[in-house]
Simulated scan of single mutants.
Amino acid sequence: MLSFAAPFAFLILPLPLLVWWYAPAHRETAQALRVPFFQSIAAAAGQTPSQGSLVRKRGRAQMTVAVLCWILAVVGVARPQVLGEPIVIEKAARDLVLAVDISGSMDARDMSDADGNPLQRLAAVKEVINDFIVERDGDRVALIVFGSNAYLQTPFTEDLESAAELMEQTQVGMAGPHTAMGDAIGLTLRTFEASEIEQKLLILLSDGADTNSQMSPLNATEIAANAGVKIFTIGVGDPDGSGDDRVDLDTLEAIAKRADGAFYVADDAQGLADIYAEIDRLNPRVVDTTTFQPRQEFGHLAFTAVALLGIAMMFGLMLSSVREARRG
Rank of each mutant, 00 (worst) to 15 (best):
residue 101 D to E: 11
residue 101 D to C: 08
residue 101 D to V: 07
residue 101 D to P: 07
residue 102 I to Y: 00
residue 102 I to R: 03
residue 102 I to G: 02
residue 103 S to R: 07
residue 103 S to M: 06
residue 103 S to A: 12
residue 103 S to N: 13
residue 104 G to Q: 12
residue 104 G to T: 12
residue 105 S to I: 14
residue 106 M to I: 12
residue 106 M to Q: 13
residue 106 M to V: 12
residue 107 D to T: 13
residue 108 A to W: 05
residue 108 A to G: 13
residue 108 A to H: 07
residue 109 R to Y: 08
residue 109 R to D: 11
residue 110 D to F: 05
residue 110 D to A: 09
residue 111 M to I: 09
residue 112 S to Y: 14
residue 112 S to R: 15
residue 113 D to L: 12
residue 113 D to S: 11
residue 114 A to M: 11
residue 114 A to Y: 06
residue 114 A to R: 11
residue 114 A to H: 10
residue 114 A to N: 12
residue 115 D to I: 01
residue 115 D to Y: 08
residue 116 G to Y: 11
residue 116 G to L: 14
residue 116 G to E: 14
residue 117 N to Q: 14
residue 117 N to R: 15
residue 118 P to N: 13
residue 118 P to D: 12
residue 118 P to Q: 12
residue 118 P to R: 15
residue 118 P to I: 06
residue 118 P to S: 14
residue 119 L to C: 10
residue 119 L to N: 06
residue 121 R to W: 01
residue 121 R to E: 09
residue 121 R to A: 06
residue 121 R to P: 03
residue 121 R to K: 13
residue 122 L to N: 08
residue 122 L to T: 15
residue 122 L to E: 10
residue 122 L to Q: 09
residue 123 A to P: 08
residue 124 A to V: 12
residue 124 A to F: 05
residue 124 A to R: 10
residue 125 V to C: 06
residue 125 V to A: 09
residue 125 V to E: 03
residue 125 V to W: 00
residue 125 V to N: 05
residue 126 K to H: 04
residue 126 K to N: 15
residue 126 K to M: 11
residue 126 K to V: 12
residue 127 E to Q: 15
residue 129 I to D: 05
residue 129 I to V: 15
residue 129 I to A: 11
residue 130 N to C: 08
residue 130 N to S: 15
residue 130 N to A: 11
residue 131 D to F: 06
residue 131 D to T: 10
residue 131 D to A: 10
residue 131 D to Y: 01
residue 132 F to I: 07
residue 133 I to T: 04
residue 133 I to E: 02
residue 133 I to M: 02
residue 133 I to P: 08
residue 133 I to H: 02
residue 134 V to R: 15
residue 134 V to F: 00
residue 134 V to G: 03
residue 135 E to S: 13
residue 135 E to A: 14
residue 135 E to F: 00
residue 135 E to N: 13
residue 136 R to M: 14
residue 136 R to S: 09
residue 137 D to E: 14
residue 137 D to G: 09
residue 138 G to Y: 04
residue 138 G to V: 01
residue 139 D to R: 08
residue 139 D to A: 10
residue 139 D to E: 14
residue 140 R to I: 03
residue 140 R to C: 05
residue 140 R to Y: 01
residue 141 V to Y: 01
residue 141 V to A: 02
residue 141 V to L: 02
residue 141 V to W: 01
residue 143 L to C: 14
residue 143 L to M: 10
residue 143 L to G: 09
residue 144 I to C: 00
residue 144 I to K: 00
residue 144 I to W: 00
residue 145 V to H: 00
residue 146 F to L: 03
residue 146 F to T: 06
residue 146 F to E: 01
residue 148 S to E: 10
residue 148 S to A: 10
residue 148 S to R: 10
residue 149 N to I: 14
residue 149 N to Y: 11
residue 150 A to Y: 01
residue 150 A to F: 03
residue 150 A to W: 01
residue 150 A to L: 08
residue 151 Y to Q: 06
residue 152 L to T: 15
residue 153 Q to W: 03
residue 154 T to L: 00
residue 154 T to S: 08
residue 155 P to K: 09
residue 155 P to L: 03
residue 155 P to R: 07
residue 155 P to D: 07
residue 156 F to H: 05
residue 156 F to T: 05
residue 156 F to N: 07
residue 156 F to R: 07
